[in-house]
Amino acid sequence: MTDDLPDDLTPADMLAMEWALGTLDSKARADAEVRRARDPEFAALCSNWAEQLAPLAEEIAPIAPSPALWSRIDAEIGKEDGFQPAATPVTIAPWWSRLALWQGATAAFASLALALLVTRPSPPAPAASPPAAATQGNLLAATLAAESGRALVTASLDTGRSSVVVSPVASEDLDGRVPELWLIPADGTPRSLGLIDLGGVQKVSVSPTLLKLVAEGAVLAVSLEPAGGSPTGLPTGPVVATGKLTNL
């Protein structure tokens, strides 16, 4: 294929073209996504091509969505109200500081506290939280570790906030795949909580349906999936870490 190739194009240039055009297969797309996240120069090439190609979409006629679509989107967003994008960590801070305090305790103390199943009163609702949705919440935590015992992420789940805060503590060779977080409740069937990023602390929302399945002893797990997440709704890739939820 190389005989005719324009010789002034760099491999990054060509990959960015393929990324923006969308011609790659799943594996290569996932690899390109990883590179885009890690390599700002490559990400800029990609944005540039996405920008150049966007006008092509103008020729596609708009389609009026069914009236139910907006209701579905609005309901989904409503569930996440109080969720703040990662770039505004302010609302995460009070949460996180509580966990940091807990993590600061000695391991011996922590395991003792866990062994005694110390339950803590639900935290006072911060002023910023949405008024109506504030319910009495349970705080659960889990350390997700590989079979070797190596911890990959810690997670703390606040049922009152319908969310789980995930904090990576180690990196993982993703091999072009994306980490997906799963809740495995008492019935043993994994439910996806969505894709996570091992690059930093983040808050993942938990739908009311899944929230009902959250209980002490339920397991959180991380599997590596193709770009866009598991296509089947169940983990398809290797499970790289698991951990049991314990009441705090």
Binding site: L5, P6, M14, M17, L21, G22, T23, L24, A57
Partner: peptide, 29 residues
Amino acid sequence: AAYLDGMSYDALSAREGVPVGTIKTWVFR
């Protein structure tokens, strides 16, 4: 076809009746 229909290299290759390498060359050029 790639941008508007989301066709992959394999699909484009089958449609045009040329090898994937040729499709890539057309895309890059």
